[in-house]
Design a protein around this nucleic acid. Structure first.
Lengths: 128, 128
DNA sequence: GAGAAGGTTTACGTTTACGTAAAGTAGGCT
DNA sequence: AGCCTACTTTACGTAAACGTAAACCTTCTC
């Protein structure tokens, strides 16, 4: 048997409340085992939680995160499904690449602003 | 006098409803001129709308977008303000860099998945 | 001058992602 | 036994970001 975790452990680790973790279960994003009525989380559940958090940092909705995680679980039996699957992945990639571009643009602007400010600041301080 | 736009023009250009554009005004994100009771948008308003949309693609809330846009409007009079300003910019940059990393990780996984799938697919099709 | 097209305010409705409170259970300590 | 602590379900509340409907101006066109 591998490592297991209680709900409070994971909540603390990821900086959310236990309510949040249960909510994700309600939404079908994780499905921990039970011991009596208590939830027991496996390392796999923990990985899924990590993926959820990353998705959230990317601004995805929980539904979108669910879709994304389904991608990892698809079984490659049917050719048709495989093709559809590849399309979905490509769409995702396109979105992500757009986001990456947005971030790089914004980062560039931030850097420019920062430079302007530090320059202004040093000017003011040499005048004194 | 420069170019001006009606609310429907901008809504259409950015793929949102007029309700949305007015909502952003309510939130203080844009402040178009008026001609009588009608809203008249300047190129500057349009730029702000573009920034709003980019912020949304990055998963920011409207409040966060407002903060970000305030950065562009700050006047560099007080040294104290300048220093605070630089801190804010650096925080933003840290967040953005984290997001960029998340995206790159996810992109890498998507690419890996895509490769697996195309490979599987070609295997299946040669067997036929 | 009647209506159609496009704009306006006001205001209630909706979805998402939880917060928060209530009330019960189950095991451990002393 | 009695209490504490951690967990559970149930359920109502809430903030954000609009959707949607109602009722009212203008202005243009025919």
């Amino acid at each position: 048997m591998g490592e297991t975790y209680g709900i409070a452990d994971l909540a603390k680790e990821f900086g959310v409340t236990t309510r949040t973790v249960r909510f994700y279960e309600d939404k079908g994003l994780i499905a921990p085992a039970r011991e009596g009525q208590r939830r027991i989380y496996s390392p796999r559940d923990r990985v899924r939680l990590r993926l959820i958090m990353r998705g959230k940092r990317l601004g995805l909705t929980l539904d979108e995160i669910a879709e994304l995680m389904d991608l990892y679980d698809v079984d490659p039996s049917e050719v048709t499904q495989l093709k559809q699957f590849i399309d979905v992945i490509r769409d995702r990639k396109t979105v992500l690449e757009g986001q990456k571009k947005d971030i790089e643009e914004t980062l560039a602007e931030m850097t420019r602003l920062e430079r302007q400010c530090t320059q202004l600041l040093s000017q003011k301080q040499t005048k004194k």
